Amino acid sequence: MDKTANQMIRETAARVLRLEGQAVVDMAENLPADFEAAVAAILEVEGRVILSGIGKSGHIARKISSTLASTGTPSAFVHPAEASHGDLGMVMPGDLVILISNSGETAELGDIVAHVARFSIPMIGISRNNQSTLMQAADWRLTLPPASEACIIGMAPTTSTTLTLALGDALAVSVMERRGFLPEHFRTFHPGGKLGAQLSKVAQLMHGVEELPLVHPGSAMGDTLIEMSEKSFGIAGVVEDHKLVGVISDGDLRRNMDGLMERKAGDVATNSPRSIGPDMLAAEAMAVMSEHKITALFVVDDSGRPVGLLHLHDCLRAGIA
């Protein structure tokens, strides 16, 4: 393509992004009147938050349901067509239903609307038409602000779906924060991949007490070297009164080569060594190792007693980098 064509493409992209971005900003400054009540209703649900929609609204509903589920709110998507053929049984008293329809007149949602009314299941409606059939049936109305679609013919769902998606994120994050959702809770729902690895705690990756290379300050260096060799971490912890008081690394051995075998472990060890707690994020522990150019850290409890050891290789194997 020539420069003129490329420029036209960039101008189109910029126009779409500006239009949709401005629509989101406008909604942020004028949230739907029932927004706070909708958040409170979700927080009170004893069952699941059920989402449904057809077409593009269905895709957005699936994403909102997934976001809720991954941030501590049990949720599921029910396809409206499948609901009419048996899946209405998935929507039970104790649940809350969120129905999405840009026009608010989507015929396929009719059976779900009738079902929730019959069993007094609370319902949130999301639509741009506050006077629509859907919104009139809803207990809480999240009305989208008026905004033109970004496509050149003004008909393809673009701005409207972006607004709905952003509003769903706002709901999920508001609920998440009110629940006091923490990183350790997040990892429960994201155990795999890079994200799960970054949220791993030291306790989940460390080697246990039985694997620790430990000696006493008065241990002969011959015995200390055997302990270091058998445990294969390139490090030994010096323990006194059950507390970690020193660490012997390969570097300590090299610095004390002169008369090494005549010394005791306490003479060679680095005193007041760096250590970590079992509840620290493994990514944070790896940052400590990187900053101080070390490859292993002893894990101690609140009393200073060694309870584990985390090696750089453990972090790398877990996908933390």
Results as ranks from 00 to 15, higher is better:
residue 26 D to L: 10
residue 287 A to Q: 12
residue 252 D to M: 13
residue 259 G to F: 10
residue 196 G to C: 11
residue 268 V to G: 12
residue 136 Q to R: 13
residue 308 G to Q: 03
residue 24 V to F: 10
residue 229 S to R: 12
residue 123 M to S: 06
residue 19 L to R: 14
residue 53 G to Y: 06
residue 116 V to M: 07
residue 174 S to K: 13
residue 154 G to W: 00
residue 40 A to C: 05
residue 103 S to N: 00
residue 249 S to T: 15
residue 143 T to Y: 01
residue 310 L to F: 08
residue 145 P to F: 12
residue 83 A to K: 09
residue 272 S to L: 11
residue 223 D to Y: 07
residue 167 L to I: 01
residue 68 L to A: 04
residue 20 E to S: 08
residue 219 S to L: 02
residue 201 K to V: 04
residue 86 G to E: 01
residue 61 A to W: 01
residue 170 A to M: 14
residue 156 A to C: 08
residue 209 V to S: 11
residue 303 S to P: 00
residue 284 E to G: 08
residue 264 K to R: 15
residue 88 L to E: 05
residue 67 T to M: 02
residue 303 S to I: 08
residue 161 T to D: 01
residue 9 I to S: 00
residue 58 G to E: 08
residue 230 E to Q: 14
residue 70 S to G: 09
residue 259 G to W: 05
residue 62 R to P: 11
residue 47 G to D: 03
residue 211 E to K: 15
residue 250 D to S: 05
residue 135 M to I: 06
residue 120 S to I: 00
residue 96 L to S: 10
residue 212 L to D: 08
residue 152 I to W: 02
residue 6 N to P: 00
residue 278 P to W: 01
residue 220 A to Y: 09
residue 267 D to N: 13
residue 291 E to W: 09
residue 272 S to Y: 12
residue 190 H to D: 06
residue 293 K to T: 14
residue 293 K to N: 15
residue 228 M to W: 04
residue 130 N to L: 12
residue 202 V to K: 04
residue 245 V to D: 03
residue 231 K to Q: 09
residue 60 I to D: 00
residue 121 I to R: 01
residue 20 E to C: 09
residue 171 L to N: 04
residue 231 K to I: 08
residue 83 A to Y: 13
residue 141 R to V: 01
residue 252 D to F: 04
residue 242 H to Q: 13
residue 118 R to I: 02
residue 123 M to Y: 04
residue 31 L to P: 15
residue 64 I to S: 07
residue 287 A to P: 04
residue 146 P to I: 10
residue 300 V to D: 05
residue 221 M to S: 00
residue 30 N to K: 15
residue 13 A to I: 15
residue 298 F to N: 09
residue 255 R to K: 13
residue 157 P to S: 11
residue 129 N to W: 03
residue 19 L to K: 11
residue 203 A to T: 01
residue 175 V to S: 02
residue 217 P to C: 14
residue 149 E to P: 00
residue 28 A to F: 14
residue 278 P to M: 03
residue 311 H to D: 10
residue 244 L to R: 04
residue 101 S to C: 07
residue 141 R to P: 01
residue 124 I to Y: 02
residue 151 C to Y: 04
residue 161 T to Q: 05
residue 314 D to E: 02
residue 225 L to N: 07
residue 111 D to I: 07
residue 201 K to H: 13
residue 57 S to M: 02
residue 153 I to P: 00
residue 237 G to T: 07
residue 38 A to L: 00
residue 318 A to D: 09
residue 281 L to A: 08
residue 165 L to I: 10
residue 15 R to Y: 10
residue 66 S to I: 04
residue 116 V to K: 12
residue 299 V to F: 10
residue 218 G to Y: 14
residue 237 G to V: 09
residue 314 D to M: 04
residue 27 M to S: 11
residue 279 D to L: 14
residue 207 H to V: 04
residue 54 I to P: 01
residue 267 D to T: 06
residue 304 G to S: 07
residue 81 A to H: 09
residue 311 H to V: 05
residue 283 A to M: 07
residue 243 K to C: 15
residue 292 H to S: 10
residue 20 E to I: 12
residue 57 S to Q: 05
residue 21 G to D: 13
residue 193 G to K: 10
residue 92 M to P: 00
residue 21 G to A: 14
residue 94 G to Q: 05
residue 75 S to K: 06
residue 90 M to G: 04
residue 29 E to N: 15
residue 259 G to M: 02
residue 310 L to S: 03
residue 302 D to I: 03
residue 278 P to Y: 03
